[in-house]
């Protein structure tokens, strides 16, 4: 722990810009939202449309977080624990969805897993459809949140002591056994943080979801999509849904604060 700094040490310019940033990026939007909440209309949350969107959102986020960790851990392990030519290219590729506009991700998913996509046509002949299904929404959300999981787990793997894994190997443990009994247990806090982060990112996902999975109420319409749709006809309803999303996201960040964000 660094000792707390005397506030008078901080340059005035830094403090001014920080205050300005907080005002513009945090306080104003938050205050705007809260000022517009039609407290009398809070009962709208109980309406089937809002409830359906909330349930779809929870399903999709949870499914995407699970998928992201299940897929992200092996990718992170390969990046952190092996060396091969083209590793940095692979890392750039798997992190691409982080900087790609989600809409572009949705288009890419359509060209791959759409009914006539290069993979989708085989899935279709096997009777599996992804576009415009809840599973498709999960895939779209996992697409954007897996890079976060990879980053979190890879840095976790790099900071755990690989000598413990070497020691386990000298005791006769196979690589798989080492991962199961040493690596994963040691990495549990980071795995948890990665899952929560993925869940939060998936909760806010909009572009890839609407492009690939559409906006079908009760199936692929998540809270962000519902907010967008409601805004056209019923701005008050959109505000209520937005506040719900905000509370969920803030809750996740507060739960994470010690594990991941403060480092």
């Amino acid at each position: 722990m660094t000792p707390p700094r005397n506030r008078s040490d901080a340059p005035v310019a830094i403090l001014v810009v920080a205050a300005l940033g907080i005002a513009v990026l945090v306080v104003a939007p938050l205050a705007g939202l809260l000022a517009r909440v039609p407290w009398s209309g809070i009962g709208r949350l109980a309406e089937p449309e809002a409830r359906a969107a909330l349930i779809v959102s929870l399903e999709v986020s949870s499914g995407a977080a699970l998928l992201a960790v299940v897929v992200g851990f092996p990718i992170a392990w390969v990046l952190a624990r092996t060396t091969f030519v083209g590793r940095s290219v692979l890392r750039a590729l798997v992190l691409l969805p982080l900087v790609l506009p989600p809409v572009v991700g949705g288009v890419a998913l359509l060209t791959a897993f759409g009914r006539r996509g290069i993979v989708g046509r085989f899935l279709a002949s096997a009777g599996i459809t992804l576009p415009f299904t809840t599973a498709g929404a999960v895939l779209a959300a996992a697409f954007v949140s897996t890079p976060l999981v990879i980053l979190a787990i890879e840095s976790g793997l790099r900071s755990t002591d690989s000598r413990l894994e070497d020691a386990a190997a000298t005791m006769g443990a196979s690589r798989r056994y080492v991962i199961r009994r040493i690596t994963i247990p040691l990495l549990r806090p980071q795995l948890l943080a990665a899952a929560v982060l993925a869940w939060a990112r998936a909760l806010g996902e909009f572009g890839a979801t609407i492009t690939f999975a559409g906006n079908l109420r009760g199936r692929t319409q998540t809270l962000p999509l519902a907010v967008f749709e409601t805004l056209q006809s019923d701005p008050d309803g959109a505000v209520v849904l937005s506040v719900v999303l905000m509370i969920l996201s803030l809750g996740v960040l507060i739960a994470l604060r010690d594990r991941f964000l403060s480092r």
Binding site: D161, R163, D166, A167, A169, T170, G172, A173, S174
Partner: peptide
């Protein structure tokens, strides 16, 4: 390493 059957007390114990 896993097939050698060498018993080791590591310097930092591990």
């Amino acid at each position: 390493a896993r097939d050698r059957r060498v018993g080791i007390v590591f310097q930092d114990l591990l």
